[in-house]
Protein backbone atom coordinates (compact mmCIF):
# COMPACT_ATOMS: atom_id res chain seq x y z
CA UNK A 1 0.00 0.00 0.00
CA UNK A 2 1.46 3.29 -0.99
CA UNK A 3 -0.15 6.30 0.59
CA UNK A 4 2.42 8.70 -0.71
CA UNK A 5 1.46 11.14 -3.39
CA UNK A 6 3.72 11.17 -6.42
CA UNK A 7 5.49 14.39 -5.66
CA UNK A 8 6.80 13.26 -2.28
CA UNK A 9 10.51 12.83 -1.85
CA UNK A 10 12.56 11.23 0.87
CA UNK A 11 14.73 13.62 2.83
CA UNK A 12 18.34 13.21 1.77
CA UNK A 13 20.01 13.10 5.19
CA UNK A 14 18.79 11.01 8.13
CA UNK A 15 16.79 13.04 10.60
CA UNK A 16 18.96 14.03 13.57
CA UNK A 17 16.02 12.95 15.74
CA UNK A 18 16.14 9.34 14.51
CA UNK A 19 17.95 6.99 16.90
CA UNK A 20 20.25 4.13 15.96
CA UNK A 21 19.77 0.68 17.48
CA UNK A 22 22.02 -0.36 20.36
CA UNK A 23 21.99 -3.54 22.41
CA UNK A 24 22.37 -3.62 26.19
CA UNK A 25 25.40 -5.74 27.07
CA UNK A 26 25.32 -5.33 30.81
CA UNK A 27 23.49 -3.42 33.50
CA UNK A 28 25.34 -2.89 36.74
CA UNK A 29 23.90 -1.42 39.89
CA UNK A 30 26.25 1.25 41.22
CA UNK A 31 24.34 2.53 44.25
CA UNK A 32 20.82 2.35 45.66
CA UNK A 33 19.44 4.34 42.74
CA UNK A 34 22.13 4.52 40.06
CA UNK A 35 22.86 2.05 37.32
CA UNK A 36 25.56 1.69 34.71
CA UNK A 37 24.61 0.56 31.27
CA UNK A 38 26.93 -0.90 28.67
CA UNK A 39 25.75 -0.65 25.09
CA UNK A 40 26.95 -1.97 21.78
CA UNK A 41 25.84 -1.07 18.32
CA UNK A 42 23.20 -3.43 17.01
CA UNK A 43 23.50 -2.60 13.33
CA UNK A 44 27.18 -3.45 12.88
CA UNK A 45 28.08 0.20 12.44
CA UNK A 46 30.18 0.30 15.62
CA UNK A 47 29.92 3.03 18.15
CA UNK A 48 30.37 6.65 17.21
CA UNK A 49 33.55 8.19 18.60
CA UNK A 50 33.04 10.69 21.38
CA UNK A 51 34.97 13.21 23.44
CA UNK A 52 35.03 13.26 27.23
CA UNK A 53 32.08 15.36 28.40
CA UNK A 54 29.72 14.64 25.52
CA UNK A 55 26.30 13.07 25.92
CA UNK A 56 23.88 10.83 24.06
CA UNK A 57 20.11 10.79 23.86
CA UNK A 58 18.96 7.35 24.95
CA UNK A 59 15.53 6.11 23.87
CA UNK A 60 13.74 3.31 25.66
CA UNK A 61 10.96 1.76 23.64
CA UNK A 62 7.60 2.86 24.94
CA UNK A 63 9.03 5.14 27.63
CA UNK A 64 10.80 7.99 25.86
CA UNK A 65 14.17 9.60 25.53
CA UNK A 66 16.58 11.28 27.95
CA UNK A 67 20.02 12.87 27.71
CA UNK A 68 22.75 10.78 29.36
CA UNK A 69 26.39 11.72 29.70
CA UNK A 70 28.88 9.23 28.34
CA UNK A 71 30.95 7.78 31.13
CA UNK A 72 33.10 5.19 29.38
CA UNK A 73 36.64 5.37 28.09
CA UNK A 74 36.95 7.31 24.82
CA UNK A 75 39.72 4.87 23.87
CA UNK A 76 37.40 1.85 24.13
CA UNK A 77 36.23 1.49 20.55
CA UNK A 78 33.13 -0.66 20.89
CA UNK A 79 31.30 0.02 24.10
CA UNK A 80 29.19 2.99 25.05
CA UNK A 81 28.78 3.36 28.80
CA UNK A 82 26.20 5.45 30.61
CA UNK A 83 25.46 5.86 34.29
CA UNK A 84 22.03 7.11 35.28
CA UNK A 85 19.98 7.76 38.35
CA UNK A 86 16.54 6.28 38.50
CA UNK A 87 14.54 9.47 38.88
CA UNK A 88 12.20 10.27 35.99
CA UNK A 89 9.98 7.88 34.13
CA UNK A 90 12.49 7.22 31.35
CA UNK A 91 15.46 6.82 33.69
CA UNK A 92 13.44 4.33 35.71
CA UNK A 93 12.77 2.36 32.55
CA UNK A 94 16.48 2.51 31.69
CA UNK A 95 17.38 1.12 35.09
CA UNK A 96 15.06 -1.82 34.47
CA UNK A 97 16.72 -2.80 31.20
CA UNK A 98 18.24 -6.26 30.95
CA UNK A 99 21.16 -7.50 28.95
CA UNK A 100 20.03 -8.18 25.40
CA UNK A 101 17.39 -5.44 25.38
CA UNK A 102 17.54 -2.91 22.62
CA UNK A 103 17.58 0.86 22.99
CA UNK A 104 17.77 3.75 20.56
CA UNK A 105 20.72 6.10 20.70
CA UNK A 106 21.46 9.49 19.19
CA UNK A 107 24.73 11.30 19.64
CA UNK A 108 27.24 12.17 20.75
CA UNK A 109 26.28 15.78 21.32
CA UNK A 110 27.71 18.78 23.14
CA UNK A 111 31.05 20.30 23.97
CA UNK A 112 33.92 18.34 25.56
CA UNK A 113 35.98 18.88 28.69
CA UNK A 114 39.23 20.76 27.91
CA UNK A 115 41.56 17.77 28.30
CA UNK A 116 43.86 19.00 25.54
CA UNK A 117 44.10 22.46 27.05
CA UNK A 118 45.09 20.92 30.38
CA UNK A 119 48.31 19.42 28.98
CA UNK A 120 51.31 20.65 30.94
CA UNK A 121 49.13 21.95 33.77
CA UNK A 122 47.81 20.67 37.05
CA UNK A 123 44.32 19.24 36.65
CA UNK A 124 41.71 19.45 39.39
CA UNK A 125 38.58 17.40 38.75
CA UNK A 126 35.74 18.16 41.16
CA UNK A 127 32.64 15.96 41.12
CA UNK A 128 29.48 15.88 43.20
CA UNK A 129 27.20 12.86 43.37
CA UNK A 130 26.41 11.48 39.95
CA UNK A 131 28.52 14.32 38.51
CA UNK A 132 31.43 11.90 38.56
CA UNK A 133 29.90 10.00 35.62
CA UNK A 134 30.59 12.64 32.91
CA UNK A 135 34.04 13.25 34.41
CA UNK A 136 35.17 9.62 34.41
CA UNK A 137 36.22 9.75 30.73
CA UNK A 138 38.47 12.70 31.68
CA UNK A 139 40.10 10.62 34.41
CA UNK A 140 40.68 7.78 31.93
CA UNK A 141 42.36 10.18 29.54
CA UNK A 142 44.47 11.87 32.21
CA UNK A 143 45.72 8.55 33.52
CA UNK A 144 46.31 7.10 30.06
CA UNK A 145 48.57 10.01 29.24
CA UNK A 146 49.67 10.78 32.77
CA UNK A 147 53.09 12.23 31.88
CA UNK A 148 51.43 14.98 29.84
CA UNK A 149 49.98 16.63 32.94
CA UNK A 150 51.23 18.14 36.17
CA UNK A 151 49.52 17.17 39.40
CA UNK A 152 46.23 15.35 38.87
CA UNK A 153 43.61 15.61 41.59
CA UNK A 154 40.09 14.23 41.92
CA UNK A 155 37.90 15.76 44.59
CA UNK A 156 34.64 13.91 44.97
CA UNK A 157 31.74 14.57 47.31
CA UNK A 158 28.55 12.59 47.87
CA UNK A 159 25.72 12.59 50.37
CA UNK A 160 26.74 9.36 52.12
CA UNK A 161 29.35 6.65 51.56
CA UNK A 162 26.62 4.52 49.96
CA UNK A 163 26.22 7.12 47.21
CA UNK A 164 29.80 6.87 46.00
CA UNK A 165 30.00 5.72 42.38
CA UNK A 166 32.61 3.39 40.92
CA UNK A 167 33.95 2.36 44.34
CA UNK A 168 36.34 -0.33 43.10
CA UNK A 169 37.75 1.96 40.49
CA UNK A 170 38.18 4.77 43.03
CA UNK A 171 40.11 2.40 45.28
CA UNK A 172 42.35 1.49 42.37
CA UNK A 173 42.92 5.14 41.50
CA UNK A 174 43.60 5.96 45.12
CA UNK A 175 46.42 3.44 45.22
CA UNK A 176 48.29 5.29 42.48
CA UNK A 177 51.02 7.58 43.66
CA UNK A 178 50.59 9.94 40.73
CA UNK A 179 46.89 10.59 41.30
CA UNK A 180 45.47 12.27 44.39
CA UNK A 181 41.90 11.16 45.10
CA UNK A 182 40.04 12.94 47.89
CA UNK A 183 36.54 11.78 48.75
CA UNK A 184 34.19 13.36 51.25
CA UNK A 185 30.61 12.75 52.33
CA UNK A 186 28.00 14.86 54.11
CA UNK A 187 26.91 12.16 56.51
CA UNK A 188 28.56 8.97 57.55
CA UNK A 189 28.08 6.06 59.88
CA UNK A 190 30.79 5.46 62.48
CA UNK A 191 32.47 2.88 60.26
CA UNK A 192 33.41 5.53 57.66
CA UNK A 193 37.06 6.35 58.00
CA UNK A 194 37.21 9.03 55.37
CA UNK A 195 36.44 12.71 55.30
CA UNK A 196 33.10 14.21 56.36
CA UNK A 197 32.19 17.68 55.15
CA UNK A 198 30.88 19.30 52.02
CA UNK A 199 33.04 18.99 48.90
CA UNK A 200 34.15 22.64 48.98
CA UNK A 201 36.03 22.06 52.25
CA UNK A 202 38.52 19.81 50.45
CA UNK A 203 39.58 22.44 47.93
CA UNK A 204 41.89 24.36 50.28
CA UNK A 205 43.35 21.11 51.56
CA UNK A 206 44.67 19.41 48.45
CA UNK A 207 47.93 20.28 46.84
CA UNK A 208 47.97 21.88 43.38
CA UNK A 209 49.32 25.07 41.91
CA UNK A 210 46.32 27.34 41.34
CA UNK A 211 48.28 29.53 38.93
CA UNK A 212 48.74 26.67 36.50
CA UNK A 213 45.62 24.64 37.09
CA UNK A 214 42.71 23.68 34.86
CA UNK A 215 39.63 22.72 36.88
CA UNK A 216 36.69 20.67 35.62
CA UNK A 217 33.61 20.65 37.80
CA UNK A 218 30.41 18.65 37.52
CA UNK A 219 27.47 18.31 39.84
CA UNK A 220 24.23 20.14 40.57
CA UNK A 221 24.34 23.84 39.73
CA UNK A 222 24.45 25.00 43.34
CA UNK A 223 27.41 22.73 44.08
CA UNK A 224 29.30 23.98 41.02
CA UNK A 225 28.63 27.57 42.02
CA UNK A 226 30.18 27.09 45.43
CA UNK A 227 33.03 24.94 44.13
CA UNK A 228 33.91 27.55 41.52
CA UNK A 229 33.86 30.23 44.20
CA UNK A 230 36.22 28.19 46.37
CA UNK A 231 38.53 27.50 43.42
CA UNK A 232 38.63 31.22 42.69
CA UNK A 233 39.39 31.93 46.34
CA UNK A 234 42.27 29.49 46.04
CA UNK A 235 43.56 31.49 43.06
CA UNK A 236 42.38 29.51 40.03
CA UNK A 237 41.52 31.88 37.16
CA UNK A 238 37.85 31.94 36.12
CA UNK A 239 38.83 31.16 32.55
CA UNK A 240 40.56 27.96 33.66
CA UNK A 241 37.46 26.59 35.39
CA UNK A 242 34.95 24.53 33.39
CA UNK A 243 31.51 23.42 34.49
CA UNK A 244 28.83 21.25 32.94
CA UNK A 245 25.29 22.63 32.88
CA UNK A 246 21.97 20.85 32.94
CA UNK A 247 18.65 22.00 31.48
CA UNK A 248 15.61 20.31 30.00
CA UNK A 249 16.63 18.77 26.67
CA UNK A 250 14.27 17.35 24.11
CA UNK A 251 16.21 17.35 20.85
CA UNK A 252 19.92 17.88 21.66
CA UNK A 253 20.46 19.56 18.29
CA UNK A 254 19.28 23.12 18.92
CA UNK A 255 15.80 22.81 17.40
CA UNK A 256 13.49 22.43 20.38
CA UNK A 257 14.51 25.51 22.36
CA UNK A 258 14.03 23.89 25.76
CA UNK A 259 17.60 24.01 27.05
CA UNK A 260 18.20 27.73 26.63
CA UNK A 261 20.07 29.60 29.32
CA UNK A 262 20.10 33.20 28.18
CA UNK A 263 21.78 33.15 24.76
CA UNK A 264 23.22 29.67 25.28
CA UNK A 265 21.75 26.43 24.10
CA UNK A 266 23.03 23.93 26.65
CA UNK A 267 22.80 21.10 24.09
CA UNK A 268 25.09 22.61 21.48
CA UNK A 269 26.94 25.49 23.15
CA UNK A 270 27.50 23.27 26.23
CA UNK A 271 26.95 21.25 28.27
CA UNK A 272 30.58 22.04 29.20
CA UNK A 273 31.14 25.79 29.52
CA UNK A 274 34.07 27.91 30.55
CA UNK A 275 33.07 29.36 33.88
CA UNK A 276 33.88 33.00 33.11
CA UNK A 277 31.50 32.84 30.14
CA UNK A 278 28.57 31.32 31.98
CA UNK A 279 28.96 32.92 35.39
CA UNK A 280 26.95 36.09 34.67
CA UNK A 281 23.99 33.89 33.73
CA UNK A 282 24.16 31.76 36.86
CA UNK A 283 23.40 34.80 38.97
CA UNK A 284 20.03 35.43 37.33
CA UNK A 285 17.26 33.51 39.01
CA UNK A 286 14.85 31.41 36.98
CA UNK A 287 16.73 32.20 33.77
Amino acid sequence: MNLMPENEVMPAAPHPMAPLPFRVQRVRRETRDTFTLELQSANGAGRPSFLAGQFNMVYVFGAGEVPMSITGDPADQDTIIHTTRSVGMVSQAICKLKSGDMVGLRGPFGTPWPVEEAAGKDVVVVAGGIGLAPLRPVVYQLLADRAKFGKVVLIYGTRTPADILYQKELAKWRSRLDFRVAVTVDRAPAAWRGSVGVVTTLIPKVSFDPQRTVAMVCGPEVMMRFVARELEARGVEKNRIYISMERNMKCAVGFCGHCQLGPQFICKDGAVFRYDRIRPLLGIREL
Binding site: N7, P11, M17, P19, G100
Partner: peptide, 23 residues
Protein backbone atom coordinates in the same frame (compact mmCIF):
# COMPACT_ATOMS: atom_id res chain seq x y z
CA UNK B 1 5.61 12.45 13.18
CA UNK B 2 9.38 11.94 13.08
CA UNK B 3 9.58 8.18 13.09
CA UNK B 4 7.83 4.99 14.01
CA UNK B 5 9.27 1.95 15.76
CA UNK B 6 8.12 -1.61 15.92
CA UNK B 7 9.14 -4.14 18.50
CA UNK B 8 9.50 -7.81 17.75
CA UNK B 9 10.80 -9.75 20.70
CA UNK B 10 13.95 -7.97 21.83
CA UNK B 11 14.39 -6.18 18.53
CA UNK B 12 13.31 -2.68 17.71
CA UNK B 13 13.06 -1.49 14.16
CA UNK B 14 13.06 2.27 13.77
CA UNK B 15 11.67 3.65 10.56
CA UNK B 16 12.12 7.26 9.69
CA UNK B 17 9.00 8.91 8.47
CA UNK B 18 8.77 8.89 4.70
CA UNK B 19 8.11 12.52 4.72
CA UNK B 20 5.96 14.33 2.30
CA UNK B 21 7.59 17.34 0.76
CA UNK B 22 4.69 18.64 -1.27
CA UNK B 23 5.40 21.59 -3.47
Amino acid sequence: RLWQANRTGKNIQIEEEKHAAPK
